[in-house]
Design a protein around this nucleic acid. Sequence first.
DNA 1: TCCTATATTGAACACTGTTCATTTTGCGGG
DNA 2: CCCGCAAAATGAACAGTGTTCAATATAGGA
Lengths: 201, 201
Amino acid sequence: MNLRNEKHKLGRQLILHEARQLFIALGYHQFSMRQLAKAVGCSPGTIYVHFKDKNELVNCLIEDAFDKLSETLHALEPQDDPSDQLKHALRAYIDFGLEHPNHYHFAFLMKDPRPAGTPYAPHAAFDFLRDLTKSNIQSKRLRLNDIDMVSQVLWTAIHGITSLLITKPRFPWVNKDQLINELIETAISGLNREESAQEKT
Amino acid sequence: MNLRNEKHKLGRQLILHEARQLFIALGYHQFSMRQLAKAVGCSPGTIYVHFKDKNELVNCLIEDAFDKLSETLHALEPQDDPSDQLKHALRAYIDFGLEHPNHYHFAFLMKDPRPAGTPYAPHAAFDFLRDLTKSNIQSKRLRLNDIDMVSQVLWTAIHGITSLLITKPRFPWVNKDQLINELIETAISGLNREESAQEKT
DNA sequence: TCCTATATTGAACACTGTTCATTTTGCGGG
DNA sequence: CCCGCAAAATGAACAGTGTTCAATATAGGA
């Protein structure tokens, strides 16, 4: 019973190992279960012993990848200025997306098929961003004090550039590195409290 | 010969008409050529007389939709303040995306399959945004004077929120309307020249 | 009316994800 | 050692998909 379980887990690992490479190379749609079965050296049915369906399998790959992002973010060297800390994290998020385009694509660019009722499973990475936002709000440098509002503004902003750089490689981008920096600078500076005039409505 | 051409065009229109509804209802992947053929009342092969493949057909639908966006943008009532004008346009862009999620998804969330060599076909809507950016730069209120840099920062920012609101309806968003406004406000204000301290590096 | 160029057809090809009755496998107990 | 039994693996089958193409139907001009 125990040994059987071990073997089951080994089989699962073997499939995931092979799946990882195929997924990285091909992306969600090109990546096929039958092809994977061939690569693993088993029949298509076997994969369904270990995973409910293609979506569940790919979700496992994605979770692994995003755990790594979370680790990367936590491993970031602390900055004295909370605003600098935030900038570094935003940059790391974008870099991660660009280094794992297929993972990022599946996680954030595909409409997930689960019905409206099912609760949203938060990414640890987003929680990290939210915590950093909190620090920045607590240091009272921001124009707003709604943690969720601010972190969602930041997330959507960095998601925008990450996803467009992935999906539109042929667009005549200005220097991408500068663009990313400028976007981050713009977002942070736009959220900062300004001494000079502001506010209407 | 003339009449034949007319009939050809009619057939094309008929297919596009039926395709439009299916595509809006189902999105790119659910939408199938065979299903479309059934709806039109012809055989699958006939559709390939009018369109090279599924991609080309859907591209026609998308172009129609984005022409409408371009019209909407041009029809926007002019504002005295170029910055307000820009804000209105950004808002209209986002609203358009949210009203046509499947079109938006196909246009900006799917990696287009054409090889790296093929030139990028610019959307008229993006040109419009670029022109507005130009006006804003000319009024010397912005921190930067690179039109492309600024317009790309703005585009990626509004794309971020548009796409995430489409793909992550289950995310615990704050009030969406406020979020959109706050993002636009943040982006514009972050690009504005500040009297107070700035710059490092 | 007949000829011909075009439009249309639908079967066929090569795929896809997924299911399930059937067979093989390997461990624990007698 | 071997038998039984439960778990694992199989691969054919189902219902789809986009796309192609030889064969057929059709309609306009001579």
